[in-house]
Protein backbone atom coordinates (compact mmCIF):
# COMPACT_ATOMS: atom_id res chain seq x y z
CA UNK A 1 0.00 0.00 0.00
CA UNK A 2 1.23 3.47 -0.88
CA UNK A 3 2.51 5.58 2.00
CA UNK A 4 1.80 9.29 2.36
CA UNK A 5 3.31 11.61 4.90
CA UNK A 6 1.45 12.53 8.08
CA UNK A 7 2.40 15.40 10.40
CA UNK A 8 0.78 16.46 13.68
CA UNK A 9 1.97 19.99 14.42
CA UNK A 10 0.16 20.21 17.78
CA UNK A 11 -0.67 23.61 19.30
CA UNK A 12 0.77 26.29 17.01
CA UNK A 13 0.93 30.00 16.37
CA UNK A 14 -1.12 30.44 13.19
CA UNK A 15 1.51 32.67 11.58
CA UNK A 16 4.05 29.88 11.87
CA UNK A 17 1.44 27.37 10.70
CA UNK A 18 0.46 29.36 7.61
CA UNK A 19 4.13 29.62 6.65
CA UNK A 20 4.55 25.84 7.05
CA UNK A 21 1.29 25.30 5.17
CA UNK A 22 2.58 27.22 2.16
CA UNK A 23 5.97 25.55 2.42
CA UNK A 24 4.38 22.08 2.25
CA UNK A 25 2.42 23.12 -0.85
CA UNK A 26 5.48 24.58 -2.53
CA UNK A 27 7.92 21.93 -1.37
CA UNK A 28 8.22 18.58 -3.10
CA UNK A 29 7.72 16.02 -0.36
CA UNK A 30 4.67 14.40 -1.93
CA UNK A 31 1.11 14.03 -0.72
CA UNK A 32 0.73 14.99 2.90
CA UNK A 33 -2.03 15.05 5.51
CA UNK A 34 -1.53 17.13 8.63
CA UNK A 35 -3.24 18.28 11.82
CA UNK A 36 -2.71 21.44 13.82
CA UNK A 37 -4.41 23.16 16.71
CA UNK A 38 -4.49 26.96 16.54
CA UNK A 39 -4.01 29.19 19.55
CA UNK A 40 -6.57 32.00 19.97
CA UNK A 41 -6.56 33.50 16.51
CA UNK A 42 -8.20 34.72 13.36
CA UNK A 43 -7.11 33.72 9.86
CA UNK A 44 -8.41 35.95 7.09
CA UNK A 45 -9.20 34.54 3.67
CA UNK A 46 -7.00 35.80 0.83
CA UNK A 47 -9.61 38.31 -0.40
CA UNK A 48 -10.76 39.64 2.96
CA UNK A 49 -9.85 43.04 4.34
CA UNK A 50 -9.26 42.97 8.07
CA UNK A 51 -10.89 46.33 8.77
CA UNK A 52 -13.97 45.38 6.75
CA UNK A 53 -14.52 41.86 8.08
CA UNK A 54 -13.44 42.34 11.68
CA UNK A 55 -14.33 44.61 14.54
CA UNK A 56 -10.65 45.28 15.15
CA UNK A 57 -11.20 47.03 18.49
CA UNK A 58 -12.51 43.70 19.81
CA UNK A 59 -9.65 41.67 18.35
CA UNK A 60 -6.70 43.08 20.26
CA UNK A 61 -5.95 39.83 22.09
CA UNK A 62 -6.15 37.72 18.94
CA UNK A 63 -3.31 36.77 16.67
CA UNK A 64 -4.37 37.66 13.15
CA UNK A 65 -2.91 36.53 9.88
CA UNK A 66 -4.00 35.82 6.31
CA UNK A 67 -3.83 32.62 4.31
CA UNK A 68 -3.11 32.09 0.63
CA UNK A 69 -6.53 30.57 -0.09
CA UNK A 70 -9.86 32.35 -0.40
CA UNK A 71 -12.94 31.83 1.73
CA UNK A 72 -13.95 33.32 5.05
CA UNK A 73 -12.50 33.96 8.48
CA UNK A 74 -11.19 30.97 10.39
CA UNK A 75 -11.81 31.94 14.00
CA UNK A 76 -10.32 30.01 16.90
CA UNK A 77 -11.36 30.81 20.44
CA UNK A 78 -9.35 29.94 23.53
CA UNK A 79 -11.32 26.73 24.05
CA UNK A 80 -9.00 25.21 21.41
CA UNK A 81 -11.60 22.55 20.57
CA UNK A 82 -11.26 22.56 16.82
CA UNK A 83 -9.51 20.01 14.68
CA UNK A 84 -7.67 21.80 11.91
CA UNK A 85 -6.29 19.81 9.04
CA UNK A 86 -4.39 20.33 5.84
CA UNK A 87 -4.01 18.20 2.76
CA UNK A 88 -1.48 18.68 0.00
CA UNK A 89 -2.06 16.45 -2.98
CA UNK A 90 -1.05 16.14 -6.60
CA UNK A 91 -4.05 16.86 -8.78
CA UNK A 92 -5.21 13.96 -10.91
CA UNK A 93 -8.67 12.90 -11.94
CA UNK A 94 -8.98 10.14 -9.39
CA UNK A 95 -7.81 11.02 -5.89
CA UNK A 96 -7.68 14.80 -6.23
CA UNK A 97 -9.94 15.80 -9.14
CA UNK A 98 -9.15 18.74 -11.37
CA UNK A 99 -12.71 20.00 -10.97
CA UNK A 100 -12.62 22.33 -7.97
CA UNK A 101 -15.93 21.36 -6.39
CA UNK A 102 -15.30 17.66 -6.97
CA UNK A 103 -11.95 17.97 -5.23
CA UNK A 104 -13.54 19.73 -2.26
CA UNK A 105 -16.10 16.94 -2.14
CA UNK A 106 -13.40 14.29 -2.17
CA UNK A 107 -11.37 15.77 0.71
CA UNK A 108 -14.48 16.77 2.67
CA UNK A 109 -15.50 13.11 2.39
CA UNK A 110 -12.95 12.40 5.13
CA UNK A 111 -14.86 14.71 7.48
CA UNK A 112 -18.21 13.27 6.43
CA UNK A 113 -17.00 9.71 7.01
CA UNK A 114 -15.75 10.78 10.44
CA UNK A 115 -19.08 12.35 11.39
CA UNK A 116 -21.04 9.38 10.06
CA UNK A 117 -18.82 7.20 12.28
CA UNK A 118 -20.34 9.10 15.21
CA UNK A 119 -23.86 8.46 13.89
CA UNK A 120 -24.43 11.95 12.50
CA UNK A 121 -26.31 12.91 9.32
CA UNK A 122 -23.35 14.60 7.61
CA UNK A 123 -23.26 15.82 4.03
CA UNK A 124 -21.22 17.95 1.64
CA UNK A 125 -22.73 21.34 0.86
CA UNK A 126 -21.07 22.92 -2.16
CA UNK A 127 -18.88 24.76 -2.46
CA UNK A 128 -16.82 24.11 0.61
CA UNK A 129 -18.90 23.22 3.66
CA UNK A 130 -19.69 20.06 5.56
CA UNK A 131 -23.05 20.14 7.30
CA UNK A 132 -24.90 18.05 9.86
CA UNK A 133 -28.65 18.30 9.35
CA UNK A 134 -27.92 21.35 7.17
CA UNK A 135 -25.94 23.11 9.90
CA UNK A 136 -22.34 23.95 9.10
CA UNK A 137 -19.85 21.98 11.18
CA UNK A 138 -16.80 22.37 8.97
CA UNK A 139 -15.47 25.10 6.68
CA UNK A 140 -12.79 24.35 4.12
CA UNK A 141 -10.56 26.41 1.84
CA UNK A 142 -8.51 25.34 -1.13
CA UNK A 143 -5.81 26.82 -3.29
CA UNK A 144 -3.75 25.35 -6.09
CA UNK A 145 -0.15 25.68 -7.16
CA UNK A 146 1.72 23.98 -10.00
CA UNK A 147 -0.49 20.92 -10.31
CA UNK A 148 -1.02 20.50 -6.57
CA UNK A 149 -3.82 21.46 -4.26
CA UNK A 150 -3.74 22.60 -0.66
CA UNK A 151 -6.93 22.25 1.32
CA UNK A 152 -7.27 23.46 4.87
CA UNK A 153 -10.31 23.01 7.00
CA UNK A 154 -11.66 22.80 10.47
CA UNK A 155 -13.96 20.42 12.31
CA UNK A 156 -15.68 22.15 15.20
CA UNK A 157 -15.88 20.19 18.43
CA UNK A 158 -16.95 23.25 20.39
CA UNK A 159 -17.47 26.83 19.32
CA UNK A 160 -18.13 30.19 20.96
CA UNK A 161 -20.63 31.83 18.60
CA UNK A 162 -21.11 34.89 20.82
CA UNK A 163 -17.39 35.58 20.69
CA UNK A 164 -17.29 35.15 16.92
CA UNK A 165 -20.14 37.64 16.52
CA UNK A 166 -18.36 40.05 18.88
CA UNK A 167 -15.19 40.14 16.81
CA UNK A 168 -16.63 40.05 13.29
CA UNK A 169 -18.69 42.30 11.03
CA UNK A 170 -20.92 39.70 9.42
CA UNK A 171 -23.55 41.37 7.24
CA UNK A 172 -27.07 40.01 7.04
CA UNK A 173 -26.60 39.31 3.30
CA UNK A 174 -24.30 36.45 4.20
CA UNK A 175 -27.16 34.31 5.42
CA UNK A 176 -30.12 35.45 3.38
CA UNK A 177 -30.04 32.83 0.65
CA UNK A 178 -29.46 29.97 3.02
CA UNK A 179 -32.88 30.65 4.56
CA UNK A 180 -31.35 30.62 7.99
CA UNK A 181 -33.01 32.84 10.53
CA UNK A 182 -29.78 33.52 12.33
CA UNK A 183 -26.15 32.56 12.47
CA UNK A 184 -26.84 30.57 15.63
CA UNK A 185 -29.18 28.27 13.75
CA UNK A 186 -26.76 27.79 10.88
CA UNK A 187 -23.77 26.43 12.79
CA UNK A 188 -23.20 23.40 14.94
CA UNK A 189 -20.34 21.44 16.50
CA UNK A 190 -19.62 17.89 17.54
CA UNK A 191 -20.06 18.29 21.31
CA UNK A 192 -23.48 19.81 20.74
CA UNK A 193 -24.56 17.13 18.29
CA UNK A 194 -23.40 14.26 20.48
CA UNK A 195 -24.49 15.82 23.76
CA UNK A 196 -21.09 15.09 25.28
CA UNK A 197 -17.42 16.04 24.94
CA UNK A 198 -15.35 13.63 22.91
CA UNK A 199 -11.63 13.34 23.37
CA UNK A 200 -9.95 15.33 20.59
CA UNK A 201 -7.23 12.74 20.15
CA UNK A 202 -9.86 10.07 19.62
CA UNK A 203 -11.68 12.16 16.97
CA UNK A 204 -8.38 12.92 15.25
CA UNK A 205 -7.52 9.20 15.20
CA UNK A 206 -10.90 8.39 13.62
CA UNK A 207 -10.34 11.12 11.03
CA UNK A 208 -6.86 9.86 10.23
CA UNK A 209 -8.25 6.34 9.74
CA UNK A 210 -11.02 7.64 7.49
CA UNK A 211 -8.42 9.51 5.43
CA UNK A 212 -6.44 6.28 4.93
CA UNK A 213 -9.61 4.41 3.92
CA UNK A 214 -10.78 7.06 1.48
CA UNK A 215 -7.43 7.48 -0.25
CA UNK A 216 -6.34 3.83 0.08
CA UNK A 217 -3.01 4.81 1.61
CA UNK A 218 -1.10 4.32 4.82
CA UNK A 219 -0.12 7.51 6.63
CA UNK A 220 3.43 7.57 7.92
CA UNK A 221 4.43 10.09 10.59
CA UNK A 222 7.22 12.44 9.65
CA UNK A 223 8.24 16.08 9.94
CA UNK A 224 9.12 18.89 7.57
CA UNK A 225 12.05 18.31 5.24
CA UNK A 226 15.11 20.60 5.45
CA UNK A 227 13.95 22.29 2.25
CA UNK A 228 10.48 22.91 3.71
CA UNK A 229 12.02 24.28 6.91
CA UNK A 230 14.14 26.64 4.90
CA UNK A 231 11.14 27.70 2.82
CA UNK A 232 9.14 28.23 6.01
CA UNK A 233 11.86 30.53 7.39
CA UNK A 234 11.72 32.60 4.23
CA UNK A 235 7.90 32.82 4.40
CA UNK A 236 7.60 33.76 8.08
CA UNK A 237 8.18 37.51 7.63
CA UNK A 238 5.18 37.66 5.30
CA UNK A 239 2.80 36.02 7.74
CA UNK A 240 3.98 38.30 10.57
CA UNK A 241 3.82 41.51 8.51
CA UNK A 242 1.16 44.21 8.61
CA UNK A 243 1.49 44.58 4.86
CA UNK A 244 0.21 41.05 4.34
CA UNK A 245 -2.35 40.94 7.13
CA UNK A 246 -3.85 44.43 6.87
CA UNK A 247 -3.41 45.15 3.21
Amino acid sequence: MEEWRFIDFGLVDIRDMMAMDEAILKGDEGNTFFFWTPKKSIILGFFQKADVELNLDQCKDYTITRRISGGGIAFSDDRCRQINYGVVGTIDNDLFPLDIIESYKQVCGVLIDTLVHYGLNAAFRPINDVVVDNKKISGNAQTRWEGKLLQNGTLLLDFDIEEMLRISNIPKEKFLDKKIASIREGLTWLDRELGEQRDMEEVRAVMKGKFEERFHVRLKSAGLSPKEKSLTESLLPKYYSSEWVYR
Binding site: F9, A50, D51, K60, I64, L236, Y240, S241, S242, Y246
Partner: peptide, 24 residues
Protein backbone atom coordinates in the same frame (compact mmCIF):
# COMPACT_ATOMS: atom_id res chain seq x y z
CA UNK B 1 9.83 24.91 16.32
CA UNK B 2 10.75 27.72 13.95
CA UNK B 3 13.14 30.49 14.91
CA UNK B 4 11.68 33.93 14.45
CA UNK B 5 14.24 36.68 14.27
CA UNK B 6 14.87 39.71 12.18
CA UNK B 7 11.38 40.98 11.52
CA UNK B 8 8.84 43.05 13.37
CA UNK B 9 5.44 41.86 14.45
CA UNK B 10 2.33 43.69 13.35
CA UNK B 11 1.62 46.97 15.13
CA UNK B 12 -1.88 48.09 16.11
CA UNK B 13 -1.00 51.70 15.29
CA UNK B 14 -0.55 50.70 11.71
CA UNK B 15 -3.90 48.92 11.63
CA UNK B 16 -5.81 51.91 12.95
CA UNK B 17 -4.16 54.48 10.75
CA UNK B 18 -4.76 52.35 7.69
CA UNK B 19 -8.35 51.74 8.68
CA UNK B 20 -8.93 55.45 9.04
CA UNK B 21 -7.31 56.17 5.72
CA UNK B 22 -9.57 53.59 4.13
CA UNK B 23 -12.81 54.99 5.44
CA UNK B 24 -11.88 58.66 5.22
Amino acid sequence: MIAKVGFKEQANEYILSKEHRFFQ
